[in-house]
Amino acid sequence: MRRSLFYSLILMMIFISGQLQAALSWTTHIPESSKVKKAEEKPAEHNHNERKKGKLFFLQDGIGAEAEIWLPTLERQRLEISDTGVIKVMATGFNNYHLLYARRQLEGRDEMALRYQYMRGKPSGESPGLLVGNEKGALDITPSPLTREHRRYQSNDTAVFTLTLNKEPLTLQPVILITSNGTEINLQTDNKGQLTVTLPEDFSDIKSGRRKNRPAEFTLSSSIFKNDIKYQTTLNADYHVNPSHWQSRTAGGVTIVIGFIGGLLVLRQVRSRETEHA
């Protein structure tokens, strides 16, 4: 009772201040002040120990929120939030996208944080479309589509999202894009409620090769007032360095042409030898 009163007071102070600097959102970046040791993250490699050790997430501004993991089958499992806001997510045993879902509903506020997380396990048999299409809350930010399995969001690449309020597209809705590399961009949905985002090219110290570059995170955040309730939703995801930094399309095209010309030359050589023999 005392704890919830304490949390309510904290939230009221933040609400009265008029500006929520850190909205309820998921992140894999655990603050140094956390008591839980951050897991050693190898940059962009397949982490096969994920299943046994679990993966750590931090729920920013998560006081008073409830967290769940939604399986590809739409089954929901409650997640324990530690005192420091760190959440350990164990493998569910199912393959494919899961949804990390956090919600905080107070008087006059309805906040939601979403993150689609790919996990390994046995095939669930369900399409990610089921998870993406399922109703989560009033204000929803939906990837349209979610990146296909083994594909990724990457810098300087376009991603499309749909914003809806009670399943109705939100047209001309302001959205803020914030990246862990420090970029902040104000965006707006179009007249169909779709948001087309070009993820910023804001990685520094880029190394050659996907595995050598740790992914960053982007968060899409939007809020709207309706019927005296402020709805705020964030969607968080990893994005990677665009492989164009070490993959040259021009050189690729040139080598195809070289192969083509080489093929013609070889044929010409073969034909001239046959003519000589004849």
Partner: peptide, 30 residues
């Protein structure tokens, strides 16, 4: 067109991407 590339991130990827592009060109010519 993102699958038409020469990959310089490692010698293995370079070699494989080179083979891929040359093979495609050869296939079209022949």
């Amino acid at each position: 067109t993102t699958q038409v590339y020469l990959d310089t991130s490692s010698s293995a990827y370079f070699f494989l991407s080179l083979i891929a592009n040359l093979l495609f060109g050869l296939m079209v010519a022949w």
